[in-house]
Nucleic acid binder design. Structure first.
Length: 326
DNA sequence: GCGTCCAGGTCTACC
DNA sequence: GGTAGACCTGGACGC
């Protein structure tokens, strides 16, 4: 077995700040979602209500993060410690709190979403189960693109295998606060790797070519997620679909605009929830389900999507459906 | 143990 | 512009 190409970064300097959130905000449900999805990297740790994770800013510098709630769901406040290689610059002291707040969706007001519960039994169930949970964002675009590409045409265990191998072989290990956290590869690292090497080391198959091309495009200059959010939703999606291997589904996953990223698996779940039966042809029903979601939940359909996929056990029991084995 | 099938999409060639 | 077929890999399944 070839040795790992992972780099190691020690982060001895620390800075702390507090951030207020728009209530209701449940920190634990937001950063440690019931379905098990991580906030920023599959190798972060969540213990006793605190999260240790990593973050790469758009200029490429890595930081360690320790986050915990110091308020309540109705008076939410987050205590954040940032660990860095050197003392933070004045610019970083301004940028990092803004980026953490953006990532955690602290300023987003979801009370309008919760008013849908008054007339929608499904939303009422979701809100009751996951009150205060937020959708979150990623500070850097490349991990989101890796996620989208490795989810394509593969069962989730195989996607996990590809992502974990990418991180373990080409990612970065950050050491801070007595912890070691593995974080996603920088696009420059994947752009330098050979296609054959990526296929062999990370079992990416035909996706290796796409991922390398995506990495090369980002290195040459591509809008950040923050820039894409400033664009109209259609324009941002079209820009993402210019990338090799990024189609409509993947663009919906990566785009910071609220979308409804249905794949075959989630189409089966929503077909069951909306019509009470298994879809005969899940792939072909996706456009219809997307239209229904847009008409029924409007700009909050992305929230319904995230809440549903994090509440499958409760929904299965409550509506007498088998959603967990689709 | 071995062969076959197919999955949480995308691209391309062909009509 | 619409659509069938190819694409890596590995787990599930049948024999």
């Amino acid at each position: 077995m070839k040795g790992t190409l992972m780099s190691v970064s020690d982060l001895p300097c620390s800075t702390a700040f507090r951030l207020k959130a728009t209530p209701p905000y449940d920190f634990s449900l937001t950063v440690h979602k019931p379905a098990g999805w991580s906030l920023l990297t599959p190798f972060e740790t969540f213990e006793d209500g605190a999260l240790w994770s990593g973050m790469r800013l758009n200029h490429g510098e890595m930081f360690g993060l320790k986050l915990r709630a110091v308020g309540t769901v109705e008076k939410p406040e987050i205590f954040c410690e940032v660990f860095s290689r050197e003392k933070l610059s004045t610019e970083e002291r301004k940028e990092l709190p803004e980026m953490v707040a953006w990532t955690l969706s602290l300023k987003e007001d979801i009370r309008e979403f919760y008013t849908l519960a008054e007339h929608d039994p499904l939303v009422k169930s979701l809100v009751g189960d996951l009150y205060g949970m937020r959708r979150t964002k990623r500070p850097d675009i490349f991990p989101a693109l890796i996620l989208a590409v490795t989810l394509q045409m593969a069962p989730i265990r195989r996607s996990d295998q590809m992502m974990n191998l990418l991180i373990k072989n080409y990612g970065v290990k950050v050491r801070f606060d007595g912890r070691e956290i593995l974080y996603w590869p920088a696009p420059e690292r994947i752009a330098r790797a050979g296609v054959r090497e990526l296929e062999e080391r990370c079992k990416l198959g035909y996706r290796a070519k796409s991922l390398k091309r995506i990495a090369e495009t980002i290195c040459k200059g591509f809008p950040t997620l923050q820039k894409l959010e400033e664009m109209p939703a259609d324009e941002a999606k079209a820009k993402l679909m210019e990338l090799r291997g990024i189609g409509e589904y993947s663009a919906d996953i990566v785009s910071p605009h609220p979308g409804f990223a249905l794949d075959v698996w989630s189409a089966k779940i929503f077909n069951m929830l909306l019509f009470g039966e298994e879809a005969e042809s899940p792939r072909s029903i996706i456009p219809k389900l997307k239209q229904i979601a847009k008409d029924r939940w409007g700009k909050w359909r992305g929230y319904v999507f995230t809440y549903v996929l994090n509440d499958l056990n409760n929904l299965s029991r409550r509506f007498n459906l088998n959603l967990t084995e689709l």
